[in-house]
Design a protein around this nucleic acid. Structure first.
Lengths: 229, 229
DNA sequence: TTGACATAGTGTCACCAGTACACTATATGT
DNA sequence: ACATATAGTGTACTGGTGACACTATGTCAA
């Protein structure tokens, strides 16, 4: 079946920049293309928006189909529609970025046998289309966002040490932070709950574990706040 | 001539939220619809993205066609594509917001005899489609943006008094500011150039006029900065 | 010309948040 | 028990923020 319109129409797609936090790296999830154009190149997971789904739904669906990920934090980033960004035809894409806890999600081989893999954000392979630019944009947004929203909830496991949280900020912001000042500030926010638990299996003094107080956390996210570090 | 595709495609449009600064109000530019759906209702200026223009170009073109405005500050806001937001068919719209100096631009009657007019943002008429939501989003973005970027350049005439600038912030942020603290802070940024001129035709002591130092201003915008008030 | 008016323009002090900085505590492993 | 590796803790300085009230200068009308 085919569909006919009076004027030519651009194809509408979504692309997702999925960030994950490693022990000491910020990673991005890429898939290897199985078809032209750019066969074999790595690219952001994404695909066409169906006529009967919202753009958000399309992003979640594509992400799930291509990487097996679901229930991730997902936010719209930017819409790019430059001429010639896809050699085949006019394609406008709505870019999203997502945050996932790396431990949680085993990335599955994509449905159609394309590879999916994590790459360090500061050393990605050459990407298909204008996906380098989209990745750069997403990274900038993430670095901006971290200043006025506590992102830990989305990127860290449920229980974590303060050192782990600090490392998260250091990795995202790409600079080191003072331990005492960091702790003072983050504890003063009142979104951390101190647990009666410590790290296991470490070859040194074990760190106390914390978790986010979801109520306070959501409230803080809603109100916006200042988290300069 | 008609165009045929294997799968149905959404129509792609742009909509612009144009803000202007009045003596004592933040205004938004609306046009009155001349056709179904929503004939007679007010709506954001906008229209279809052509196949051979970028989305940004489309936004500028539509803005010019429908309101006569050109050379305005324009920034992409968000893309909305909920099902049923247009009763006719699936329409995805990329929303933009623009800032203009009200004095500069006489708003022309739109090309096709639709009315164009400014409305106070806090008391707009009922809008067509989901344009209320888009307007609310744009307003929130503007209020957020004012905290880390000095917006005066886009909204004020070339020469202005400090009181005028302060009123701009008060109008956008919807709260009053302390005169002395405001002056201290804004002057400390070093983006204002003191002129040897004062207001004319006022029935009281005339205020000294300033203008933005464009170099420093652009630099500051680029670096980002903190302008909590 | 003078007085009423309307807005311009100016400084200080208290408080809090951000920053720089170094040592002790506690667990493991040999 | 000792080496090692990381956890955990407090203080002093400084700069920015916020609260606050009076004088200066022009217009206009009586």
């Amino acid at each position: 079946m085919s569909h006919t319109y009076d004027y030519p129409r651009a194809a509408l797609t979504v692309d997702c920049v999925v960030f994950g936090l490693d022990e000491d790296d910020l990673k991005v999830l890429l898939i290897q293309r199985g078809q032209e154009p750019f066969v074999g190149r790595w690219a952001l997971p994404g695909g066409f928006v169906h006529i009967d789904e919202t753009i958000d739904q399309a992003a979640r669906r594509e992400l799930h189909e291509e990487t097996g990920l679901s229930r991730v934090y997902l936010e719209q980033l930017y819409t790019v529609g430059d001429l010639g960004r896809d050699p085949r035809e006019r394609v406008v894409t709505v870019a999203y970025y997502a945050l996932v806890r790396l431990g949680d999600h085993r990335v599955q081989a994509a449905t159609d046998a394309r590879n999916a893999a994590w790459f360090a954000v500061d050393d990605p392979p050459r990407l298909a289309f204008d996906h380098d630019a989209i990745l750069a944009l997403a990274l900038a947004r993430l670095q901006g966002k971290v200043r006025y929203q506590p992102l830990g909830f989305e990127l860290l496991p449920p229980k974590f040490s303060l050192t782990r949280l600090q490392r998260m900020y250091e990795i995202i912001l790409e600079r080191s932070l003072d331990k005492r000042n960091f702790r003072k500030k983050v504890l003063s926010l009142g979104i951390l709950e101190e647990l009666d638990e410590v790290e296991q299996d470490v070859a040194h003094r074990a760190a106390r574990l914390y978790r986010f107080d979801e109520r306070t956390y959501r409230q803080l996210v809603k109100d916006g706040f200042n988290f300069e570090l």
